[in-house]
Structure formats: structure tokens, C-alpha cells
Design a binder for these strands. Structure first.
Lengths: 142, 142
DNA sequence: TATCCAGGTTGTAATGATTACAAATTAGAG
DNA sequence: CTCTAATTTGTAATCATTACAACCTGGATA
């Protein structure tokens, strides 16, 4: 319920309407059975309870949430975007073979860009992606 | 010449043919006027000297190079893939507003995944993406 | 509670990057 | 020089995502 409530509150704060479609999308994110769903994943999930929801609505809603900073967008080289309802600072561990993606909760205090290396950028955030092979893929032939 | 030679040698090693198309693609990567080109960027560049090259060939070649580990693939949320001829371990600094991407050459010795956090993965690599706003975009209204 | 409209939803069509495929070409071994 | 497997090419498909226009509705208002 935590995520859903947070998102509903955010909608109120932005004077946006709380529609059943949005509610179900939030619940799908909440259910976290998959932690890094694609738009299509959410669509399939919500469809089970709201069979007439449109894929466009899912895309719209996810885009809005990202815009409001309530959802993190994760881009790997998969050809599609994944969404991460966990906006806490954390990192990722990616299987290069099957695409499995896990969260890593460690703080790396040494990751900071010295002022003389920012090239004038204002740095607001950073993320680490660890690449490797997951246990399942290690077993398989190759 | 360094990159081109390295790539040509790699082709030989893999018993692949050294075609003019591939050579010009290597040279375009070499020219590094743009350090993180898209397939389209390379296509436009090579076209100036080889007007009949096909976009498909560019995609094929880039894909092969990535597969051989000679080119790094960089995926941001831009809807297209960028390629980085620099395979040295380095990190990136990304402007969230205009997509400008710069290299960061610092080693962060503290970035290592403790054995009890790998979830069984064999970790082979990692990269850091710093997100922020570039100097040009800071000036502009918003 | 009934009314109303700005914001939301939907289906479909468009877009844009990338890949598949089959026919034509060519690098390079013999 | 010949021959063949690898490569290139152009076009057509694919796949994720966005644009758009018509319809619908949450929730503010009276």
C-alpha cells in the first residue's frame, strides 16, 4: 500500500485526477513481483483486473510518474525501457546474457566527481551498473 | 590510426574480410570528432567518402564490433544506441536536458561488490553514469 | 445531488530505431 | 584467374513508443 498511497498523494498534490486506471497501475507497481517492469509488463498485469485499459494510458502514466520523479527509468541495451518504483538511491546488477536485473543497496562513498572534472556540469545524481552473468546463465552451456 | 589498426587486426584474427566499408567505418570511429556516435552518425560520416554505403552495413559492423568487445555500447534513455570506441574502463557524465555525454577518467577504487551481495552473479564490469545539467543548458531558461 | 468541463482515456495511425531477408557483389584462398 | 563463402545492399518487417482526435469522467461547484 505504501507505493500506491505515495503516488495517489502525489497526484493530489499536482491536482491530477485519481482514475481507476492510474490506481491499478500503481498497484501493479506496488506488487513488485517483477521489480523492473517494462510498460508492457504493467499493461499485462493491469489488464487482468481492468481488461479494457489501453497501452497508451500505461505509457502516459509511467511517463508522468517519471516526470514527477516518483519512478526511476532504467535504460539498458534491451530496446525497451524499464521502470523502477524504488526511487531510493541504489544501484543495479545486470545479467548480460538474459537481462535479469537486481538491485544493489550499497553506498559507495568514494563516488564523487571532483570539481575540476565536472566540465561545468551541475551533477545531481549518479548510478552504477554492474555487469555480469547470473547464476542461472552460468550453468547453461553458453 | 590506432583504432583502425586495432580493428583491422581483430578482423584478421576472426578470419573476417577487410572490406572498404568496414575500413571507412573504423576510420569514422577513429576520427572521434563525436565521441559517442550513433549508428546514424557513423552512416552520415562514412557516406561523405563512400556515398553508396548502406545503413544496414553500418549497423551490422557496429554490432559485430560490440560482439567482439572492441566497441562499447552506451545506452541512455534516448531511444537510440550510442557507441564508444574507447573500451578503456571509464565513466560517463550525461546532461539530462540535451543528452550531451562526456567521458570521465577517474578510477573509483571503492566500487566493488562484496561477495555476499553478488546474488550469485559473476561480475565482470561496472560503469558509473553521472547525471546533471551541462553548462550550456544551465544558461538557457529551462 | 446535478451540472459541467478540463483533464484523462482510448484506438488507431504515425514515427523512429533497428533487424530480417534475399538477391547481387566481392575479398581473398587456392 | 577462379570460385565460394562472406559481405553488402535495398527493401520490407518489427518493435517500442508517441501523436492525435474523439469520447469519457473525476471532482469542483452551486
Amino acid at each position: 500500500m505504501i507505493i500506491e498511497q505515495k503516488l495517489v498523494a502525489a497526484l493530489r498534490g499536482h491536482k491530477m485526477k485519481i482514475t481507476p486506471q492510474r490506481r491499478f497501475i500503481f498497484q501493479a507497481l506496488e506488487r513488485g513481483m517483477y521489480r523492473h517492469p517494462t510498460a508492457e509488463d504493467i499493461f499485462r498485469d493491469v489488464r487482468q483486473t481492468l481488461p479494457d485499459i489501453s497501452l497508451t494510458t500505461v505509457y502516459n502514466t509511467l511517463r508522468e510518474l517519471v516526470g514527477m520523479g516518483l519512478l526511476r527509468q532504467v535504460d539498458l541495451g534491451e530496446g525497451m525501457t524499464r521502470f523502477d518504483p524504488n526511487t531510493d538511491l541504489h544501484h543495479h546488477l545486470l545479467c548480460m546474457r538474459c537481462g535479469r536485473l537486481e538491485d544493489i543497496y550499497i553506498r559507495f562513498p568514494c563516488i564523487a566527481l571532483p570539481a575540476d572534472q565536472t566540465q561545468g556540469f551541475t551533477v545531481t545524481n549518479h548510478q552504477v551498473i554492474f555487469e555480469g552473468i547470473c547464476p542461472d546463465c552460468q550453468i547453461q552451456p553458453a
